[in-house]
Computed example of a mutant assay.
Amino acid sequence: MTDESANALAAKALHDAMCDAMVNGDVAELDSILAEEFTLTHMTGYVQSKAEWLEAIDAGQMEYHRIETVEATFNSEGTVPGLTARTLTDAMIWGSRATWRLTLRSWFEPHGEEWAVARTVASTW
């Protein structure tokens, strides 16, 4: 298996683990797979720190009910591997519940011998 293939599999596995942890409200799991300086840029453009996002999930201000990944594409251009995933995300965010068609673009960084999610940007598709 090439390094790029291994990185693609690792990125997809991290994306899946992140989505599962979001649906399960598992902030401990999210904390373990997100880089310390992780940020989530919401479709509104709001940039949220890891600590603030995890606190919002833990407090029930952000509840993810279902995330279906429709398509995922690995990108190894440049120095940081990335994954672009089109999802159907059923969530209640700050009191508004809907199923959003989100594109989640995530970038990864080394974390010991593993990878961590460094940043995710959400937009609609």
Rank of each mutant, 00 (worst) to 15 (best):
G112L: 05
Y46S: 07
V80N: 12
E4Y: 00
L34G: 00
R119K: 10
D31F: 05
T79N: 15
W125T: 01
A118L: 13
I33T: 02
A116T: 02
S32L: 11
A56L: 08
T99F: 04
A122Y: 01
E52W: 01
L83R: 02
N7D: 09
R105N: 13
V23Y: 05
G95V: 03
G78Q: 15
I93P: 01
T2G: 05
V27L: 06
D58W: 02
L54Y: 03
E36G: 08
M92S: 10
R101S: 07
K12W: 05
Q48D: 10
V47Q: 04
V27D: 07
Y64R: 11
G112K: 10
A72S: 11
T103D: 01
Y64I: 00
H111Q: 15
N24Y: 01
S5G: 09
E114L: 09
A118F: 09
E29V: 07
A11P: 06
S32W: 04
Q61L: 12
G60K: 10
D31M: 14
L40T: 00
A56C: 10
L14A: 00
M22V: 07
N24D: 08
M43L: 05
T79G: 14
T84D: 10
E114C: 06
R101C: 05
T89R: 03
E68Q: 13
M92I: 07
F74A: 11
W125R: 08
G95L: 03
S123M: 13
I33R: 10
T99P: 00
A10D: 10
A17G: 01
G95D: 12
T103V: 05
G82T: 04
T73D: 08
G95S: 11
A10L: 09
A17V: 01
T89D: 11
M43G: 06
L9I: 02
R105E: 15
T79C: 10
E77T: 06
W115L: 15
L104M: 08
A56W: 00
G82H: 07
A72G: 07
T120L: 11
M22G: 09
H65M: 08
G60T: 03
W107F: 11
D31Y: 09
G82L: 08
L40C: 01
H111G: 05
E109P: 03
T79A: 15
A6K: 12
K12V: 03
A28N: 10
E77A: 15
S123G: 07
I33L: 14
M92E: 12
K12T: 06
S76M: 13
T103W: 03
A28L: 13
H111M: 09
G82Q: 09
T120N: 06
L88T: 00
T2W: 01
K50L: 10
H65W: 02
K50F: 02
N75S: 15
L88A: 11
N75G: 15
V80Y: 13
Q48H: 03
